[in-house]
């Protein structure tokens, strides 16, 4: 059994796009999810694991970081320009998927951070570098950023657990249509292609 897969970033992007659509997101937000997955995996962050987390929550009708993050990036600069803070909803699973959208915001305002009463959760620089603070949490509480993993490295490839990919594949399959005789008959050449 394969424990993990060495994937192209574009594969992760495509898979998460389909999985997000399969989980019920509109196509435009599914595209954002795929883009965010690509952004994360290039930074050696667990794009597939986090996607599986928030998509599972999404399937249960809970809020997701992509819908929130995309809306945040759409509506800023007005919020931060006015010097106000923006409250993030409690209980977002896979909050790492906020980071790519914080990067979009950081492109306008420089470094953008998330804080909580105990201190810095995470910051994202305009360059795209991410710095996790001691208050970083994962609402699912089933993953953690490994202390040995360099947090500011760039990755040539995406690495994901095979079980996570299976989970995403299952959601992605919801974008496909089950086979039928009519479907088969209308596909292909309609004649023998063994000539």
């Amino acid at each position: 059994m394969v424990a993990s897969l060495d994937m192209a970033h574009s594969e992760i992007r495509t898979l998460v796009t389909k999985a997000a659509r399969g989980a019920g997101l509109p196509w435009g937000l599914a595209e954002e999810a795929g883009w965010a997955a690509d952004w994360l995996s290039r930074r050696a962050l667990p794009a597939a694991d986090w996607a599986a987390a928030w998509l599972a929550a999404c399937c249960e009708g809970r809020g997701d970081p992509v819908t929130f993050g995309a809306a945040l990036a759409d509506s800023l600069p007005s919020g931060i320009a006015a010097g106000s803070t923006v409250a993030i909803p409690d209980g977002l699973a896979g909050p790492g998927y906020l980071l790519p959208f914080l990067h979009r915001v950081a492109g306008t305002f420089g470094s953008v951070g998330i804080t909580d009463p105990s201190g810095i959760v995470v910051s994202v620089e305009a360059s795209g570098h991410v710095m996790f603070g001691p208050a970083w949490r994962d609402t699912s509480r089933s993953w953690e950023i490994g202390p040995a993993r360099p947090l500011r490295q760039w990755a040539d490839r995406a690495i994901a657990a095979a079980s996570v990919i299976d989970c995403l594949d299952g959601l992605a399959l919801r974008t496909t249509v089950p086979p039928s005789a009519a479907s088969r008959n209308n596909a292909g050449a309609g004649t023998s292609d063994n000539d």
């Binding site: 496909t176 249509v177 089950p178 086979p179 009519a182 479907s183 088969r184």
Partner: peptide, 16 residues
């Protein structure tokens, strides 16, 4: 996209 090996297909909206 069909479940069958993810083959792209074109359906008839009013019949399939």
């Amino acid at each position: 996209v069909s479940e069958e090996k993810l083959e792209p297909r074109l359906g008839n909206r009013h019949e399939e």
